[in-house]
Amino acid sequence: MTDVIMLAAAGLSLGAMYALVALGFSVIYRASRVFNFAHGELLGIGAFSMTSLLAAGLPWPAALAVAMTLAGLIAAGVERAVVRPMIGRPVFVTIILTLFVALLLRALMIVIWGVQPRAIESPFGEAELAVSGDAAISYQTLAQIGVAVLAMAAFFALLKYSRLGIGMRATSTDQEVAQALGIPVGRVLGATWFLAGMLAGLAGVFAAMKHAMFGHESTLIIAFRAFPAVIVGGLTSPVGTVIAGFLLGLLEIFAPVYLGPHLGGFGHNLQNVFPYVIMILFLMVRPYGLLGQRDVERL
């Protein structure tokens, strides 16, 4: 029982990260029809700028806000400079484009922050909340889950109720019609990428805090493991991707413990591929994801 509670907490905090990343992915895809492979680097930008901001003496919440904004600005910049000229191009062009943008961003980060691993101090220190028996969950984990849920709730509220949200939804349905209705499509696209970048920045800070020290790979790995969540949830469904993010986070924590020992050599480091295994199995049943729309084909 103790194990289960602690594993569940770990799974939820991991799932929260996946959900943040996957949500950003999905809204970017809905807006620009681009699968943003540079998303992982946005996580890195969030995390690394956080270290610099904390070192500069900013209080924790302010540093987090600035780091998220920075990641958002970079995302919006990528959209404006590289993605927007590519509208209407074949899918593989946008794929390799974002992959190469990712490389450039990684290089940029190395130029700015170097290759030495860094650390983000938790504002809660090592404090833990005792649950039952031996089980204890650190306040940091709880705070991560809480902040992620809050950020996502805020995002969905924005999407549902604000003028910008309505513009985003209209743009993702049909850009030309949205434009004809007087929605500033360019600005809406920019705002979409900005918000997605902020979510990524937040996820990046969390991903960095998973380890005592983190390097450029730690944040990338999280992003690449979040891809399956997007697909399982359904590319076009933000809600689906959030659900899938949490599910995959939980599964990824539980599977190596309960399943790994039965798989022999293959079970070693199972978490590296587990999300992809789940994704492939899932797509066999539902090729368009959990809540994604089935493309209606017309002739």
């Binding site: 699968f35 891809f227 697909i231 295994v277 090729p287």
Partner: peptide, 25 residues
């Protein structure tokens, strides 16, 4: 049954699976 980006991600998954399988043995 898959198209476009779905296929791209699944083939990416295939890459990870193959690499993992090779590394496991």
């Amino acid at each position: 049954r898959l198209r476009g980006l779905y296929l791209a991600i699944v083939t990416l998954g295939l890459l990870y699976l193959v690499a993992h399988t090779l590394e496991s043995y």
